[in-house]
Design a protein around this nucleic acid. Structure first.
Lengths: 223, 223
DNA sequence: GCCGTTTTGTTCTCGCGTTCACAAACTCCT
DNA sequence: AGGAGTTTGTGAACGCGAGAACAAAACGGC
């Protein structure tokens, strides 16, 4: 067995690179579906919408999977990235909060096709219990602990209103969830060792509005 | 006396700061709802989930809206940030692609309450035409040009399948949309001067999966 | 087997963003 | 009024990421 010492663990991939790997993965899948078997860094970079130098640098953190003078084997690179991200295995996921957004998430086919399996839909509102969404029955939020331990769930998705988010997060963390994707419009606090990513629909629009306003101001000032 | 010429466009706010302003805005709204009239940078920072030094530096780009030894007036600061972002006015928005996600977006109350008004829902599928979602009727995609010019729409939301996204973006740009929020899982190309922000649900999960896998590897190596 | 061409992997430099640390400024108490 | 105690606003140091440029390596033709 290889002594997995700090030198091996030292293969730390920068966060900015990690965030782009899924983009490369998708671009490679597209290329593969189109029948492309080999591509240059330039090809892949334009398919992913990034600079080719940046792409090569990103890939170099994973290892030397390309061939100089030739490029990258699409299937091989795709597998290597998938393995690095961890989506060659199946990740069980729990979604809490089956309102409008929860419905959309439960129905989103992109999860399943990318290595994620929705094992349970939970909602605190008894009215929603029993409803079947995307082939999965909505169950009471109180079943959280049982489901997490039963399916060994590490990733939880919060799609509740803002007020409920912190409570849900606390319960998740308490029963062993260590990664949370938070769609609720509120900041949630978690202990060290738990990763939280936040997706906020209205924040994205507000950022666009800021730039839009600036464009308008520049026009006003010029006129 | 500083000549604060309000048409001073030289005041460029760093992109990273712009992305956090909506978070501060939300935190201030929460504080306001709780009846808080004044807060320190420490208070606001913890409510927003950031470092207080970073918060102060961010706010300093907008101007000196605090009082040393006292803190910030919640209402006043809230208005200043809202004005800076541009959400004191109302932004008309068009959503294209009324599938699962489009439904959720159309129903999302956070848009309206934050200065955005959904003026039209468009879908290329005739089956969906006429359906009323959140009080707005679904209309054919071909009405895009008319709606954009009629309501002076600057911001478009794409919630279509990946294959349609580029076409939709092209049509939007052609008729004057200059900011696009893209939920479709594909990279879209737009000319200079058009802003695109991308929200990708499965990419966020994949990033979590990567870190989750690393946690598991560390445990394996230790055990 | 050797040379030119192509493309990767990597080094270097630069700019942005984060954080620390502290002076300036305001309030409150005596 | 003056000093002690707070809290803001900002200058400076530091670290990370982006992009350019180049050396190393593979292929193909002869």
């Amino acid at each position: 067995m290889t002594a997995r010492t700090s030198s091996e663990t030292a293969r730390e991939i920068p966060e900015a690179t990690v965030a782009r790997l899924p983009v490369y993965l998708r671009a490679l899948t597209t290329l593969s579906d189109e029948g492309t078997s080999t591509c240059s860094s330039e090809d892949l970079a334009s398919a992913a919408g990034v600079n080719s130098a940046k792409l090569r640098k990103d890939l170099s953190y994973l290892g030397s999977y390309g061939t100089r003078g030739v490029g990258y084997d699409v299937e091989y690179l795709r597998y290597q990235i998938a393995r690095e991200i961890g989506v060659t295995q199946d990740w069980p996921v729990v979604i809490v909060g089956i309102g409008n957004l929860g419905h959309a998430l439960a129905n989103y086919s992109g999860f399943r096709s990318r290595g994620f399996r929705v094992v349970a839909l939970l909602d605190a509102d008894p009215v929603r219990e029993g409803e079947v969404v995307a082939g999965v029955e909505v169950r009471p939020f109180d079943h959280l602990e049982q489901i997490v331990s039963e399916h060994d769930v590490a990733i939880g998705v919060i799609a509740t209103p803002a007020l409920a988010a912190q409570d849900v997060a606390d319960r998740m963390v308490a029963c062993g969830v260590t990664s949370i994707l938070n769609f609720a419009p509120s900041v949630i606090a978690v202990p060290d060792g738990v990763d939280v990513r936040k997706v906020d629909l209205s924040i994205e629009l507000q950022i666009l509005a800021y730039h839009e306003q600036r464009k308008a101001q520049v026009l006003d000032g010029a006129g």
